[in-house]
Amino acid sequence: MRRPSPPSSEAANPLRTAAPLPRRGAKARAALVVAGVLALQGYVVARPRAARWYPFVDYPMYARSAREGEVLRLRELRARTCEAAPRTWRVTAWQVGEQESRFHRELSLIAAGRPGARRHRARLSRTVAARPGPRPCALQLWERAVVLEADGADARALRVPRWTPLREWRVDRPDSVVTLVAG
């Protein structure tokens, strides 16, 4: 004859005793969702595919490392008119229909003169020219550098921005790149 077993902690849990059993189908569907979501998230972590499977994405932000002596470069796009007294103003990412990271990647490509830079210069020129307001005749790429020194990021360069011009091209001729200072 079997003796009744003492109540276990699980049996003492009112949630366990009172919970109605779900339909088998509901549990199977839930298991399928669990497996699918974990598989997708696990897959993009193991094999990053940028945003292809968004909202399942990997998280590589701020993963690159830096060392002493490394130079942090920030770039800025400026527009210039061709009047006798030319006016210059900063062009933001938003004004050319872009978001910050893509815009800065684009400016880096132009600064380095990489393949594809012409395409980016042409698009920026078209978009800036189509904007209402003063019509610029040239676009300029400016750069600000901060060096990581032994005792931290160069405090003076952080405090006092020093922008230097790198490249300039005519809005109507994206190929007409002039190097203003060696980048």
């Binding site: 993009v44 998280y59 932000m61």
Partner: peptide, 23 residues
């Protein structure tokens, strides 16, 4: 994923202090 990326992309140099200064 964020932790593994730091090891894969940045390596041990990610922990050198300069990396955080840079970011």
């Amino acid at each position: 994923s964020a932790a593994l990326s730091k090891l894969q992309v940045g390596g041990l140099a990610w922990f050198n202090g300069y990396t955080m200064s840079y970011h």
